[in-house]
Simulated assay, not measured.
Amino acid sequence: MARPTKEGLEYFPLDTDIDQDEKIIVVVAKFGMQGFGVIIRLMMEIYKNGYFYSWSEKEQYIFSMKVKESVEFVNEVVDECLKWGFFHQSKYEQCGVLTSKGFQKRYLLAANRRKSVHVKPEYNLMEEVSDNNNEDNADNNLVNVDEVSAKTPQKKRKESKRNNIYVEVISYLNQKTGKNYSHKSAANQKLINGRVSEGRTFEDFIRVIDIKCEQWIDNPKMSEYLRPATLFAQKNFENYVNEKLKPISQKQSDPRDYEIALNKWIANGGDPDEFDYGK
C-alpha cells in the first residue's frame, strides 16, 4: 500500500526579530506576549497543514481550546493580523482560510524535494501562477515547487554576481588609494548599479580608477575626490572612462651608457663614425 502523501511541514523557519515585523508589531503591542503566543500557534497550524489554515467556526473553538484562550480573544488577534496584512484579507473573506504569499512561498521552498507539491488555485497568491485558465484542466493554475526552486538559484546567482562587483570595484579603489570605503554601503552600491544599468562593465570601473588615480593621487587637494561619489557619479563617469591613460614614459638614459656602448663598439673593431646607439 502506497504511503499517503505528506502535506504539511514538521518544522518551519522563524526569524529572530519576528516580533518587530511591521505586519504584527501593532498586534503584539496591542495584545502583548499573550497575543504573540496566539500568532505563533497559528503559524504552527498553518505549516502543519501546509500553507493555510481553515478558519471556520469549528476550527476557532478547537484552536481556542488548544491555546487555552477565549474564542473572542483569539478572533480579536486574528482580526488585527488580517487588518495589518499578516494574513491575506481577501482569501479569508473568499475562502475562509488564513494564508499569505509568505506562507505559500516558504512552504514551497521547504517542500521542494517532494513530488507534485502545489498551491490550490483558489488559495494561490504566488506570482508564478500560470495565466492559462483552462477550465478543463485545473492543474494549469497550480504552482509547481519545481518552478519556484528553479527560479530561486537563478536569482541567487544574479545577487551573487552583483555583490561580487561591489566587492571587487570598492576593494580595487581602496587598494589604489589607501582608503577604506565599504562595498556594503547602500550609496556606493547605488552608484555602481546605476553605471552597470547603463551597460558599463567591471573593466570600465577599473579604467576610471586607474585614470583618476594617475592624475590625482599625488595632489593633496584632488586626491580627496578619489571616492565613489565622484568617480562613479553619472555626470562624471562617462567623461572619465573616455579619458586616456598617459603612456608609460621611457626611462631617461644615463649619458655614461652612451660612452660605454661607444667604447665597446670601438674595442670590437667598429668604426666610430658608423656607431648607432639606437641599434
Rank of each mutant, 00 (worst) to 15 (best):
G96M: 05
N180C: 09
D257I: 06
E224N: 13
F87M: 05
G102I: 03
K156R: 10
Y47N: 11
V97I: 14
N268H: 08
C95T: 01
C213P: 07
G85N: 09
Y181G: 01
K30M: 08
N164I: 00
M1L: 13
D257S: 15
V71P: 11
S197F: 02
N268E: 15
R256I: 00
K58H: 02
Y92A: 01
Y92D: 07
P220M: 01
N188K: 13
Y92Q: 02
K156P: 00
D146I: 05
Q89Y: 13
K115M: 06
H183C: 09
E72P: 03
S56M: 01
Q175I: 03
N188I: 09
M1C: 12
K212D: 00
E57W: 02
F205I: 07
D204A: 04
Y225W: 13
N180P: 01
I46Q: 12
K115N: 10
N242D: 13
E76L: 12
N263D: 14
H118W: 06
A2P: 11
Y181C: 06
A110T: 06
V27A: 12
V71C: 02
K161C: 00
K23S: 10
K279H: 05
I170R: 06
N268T: 09
G50L: 05
E203H: 12
D204F: 06
K251P: 08
K246G: 00
E10P: 11
K190L: 13
G96D: 05
G178Q: 09
G194M: 04
N174K: 11
N137W: 04
I248D: 02
N134F: 09
V74W: 02
D218W: 12
S197H: 08
L42G: 12
E10M: 11
S249F: 01
N134C: 10
A138I: 15
S100V: 05
P255I: 07
V129K: 15
K158D: 01
E147N: 09
V145L: 00
E168S: 14
L262F: 14
N133F: 14
P13M: 04
K190Y: 04
E243V: 01
N144D: 14
S160C: 04
S54H: 07
P4E: 07
G102A: 04
S185H: 04
C213N: 12
Y92F: 14
M43W: 05
E127V: 11
Q250H: 10
I192V: 08
V129L: 02
E214S: 15
C95A: 09
R207H: 13
L226A: 08
M65T: 14
S249C: 05
V77R: 01
M65Y: 08
L262N: 07
Y181F: 15
D257N: 15
A186C: 02
L42Y: 09
